[in-house]
Measured scan of single mutants.
Amino acid sequence: KSSGQLMAEWGLDDVDYLFSEEDYHTLTNYKAFSQFLRPLIAKKNPKIPMSKMMTVLGAKWREFSANNP
Rank of each mutant, 00 (worst) to 15 (best):
D13I: 15
N68D: 09
A8W: 09
T26R: 12
L27V: 05
A8G: 09
Y24K: 09
D16M: 03
S20P: 02
K44P: 02
M7T: 03
E9Y: 12
W10G: 02
K47E: 14
L27R: 00
E22M: 07
L6Q: 07
K31F: 10
G4L: 14
M54L: 15
E21M: 09
F36S: 11
L37S: 14
Y24M: 09
Y17S: 03
N29S: 10
S2C: 04
T26L: 13
A42G: 04
G11C: 09
K31T: 10
Y17D: 03
A8N: 13
D16E: 13
S51T: 10
Y30I: 08
F19Q: 07
L27I: 11
T55S: 08
G11W: 01
Y30K: 06
E22G: 10
E21L: 08
I41L: 15
A8P: 05
Q5I: 10
S51E: 06
V15I: 14
Y24W: 09
E22R: 12
K31W: 08
E21S: 11
D13S: 15
Y17E: 06
F33G: 00
S65Y: 10
E21P: 11
P69A: 07
R38G: 10
I48A: 05
A66Y: 10
Y24N: 09
K31S: 11
L12N: 05
N45I: 01
L40I: 15
Y30E: 10
P49R: 04
L6P: 05
N45Y: 06
D14S: 02
F19I: 05
Q35A: 11
S20Y: 05
M7Y: 01
M7N: 04
V15T: 11
E9Q: 13
H25C: 13
K52E: 13
T28D: 11
Y17N: 07
D13M: 12
F33V: 00
L18S: 12
D16N: 05
F19T: 04
S34L: 05
A8I: 15
L27S: 00
E22N: 08
N67F: 05
T55L: 12
L6W: 07
M7W: 02
N67S: 12
T55A: 13
D14M: 00
S2K: 07
F33H: 00
Q5P: 01
M50D: 13
L57P: 00
S34R: 11
L18W: 09
I41T: 12
V15N: 02
P49E: 11
M54F: 05
S3L: 10
M53H: 00
K1E: 02
M53D: 05
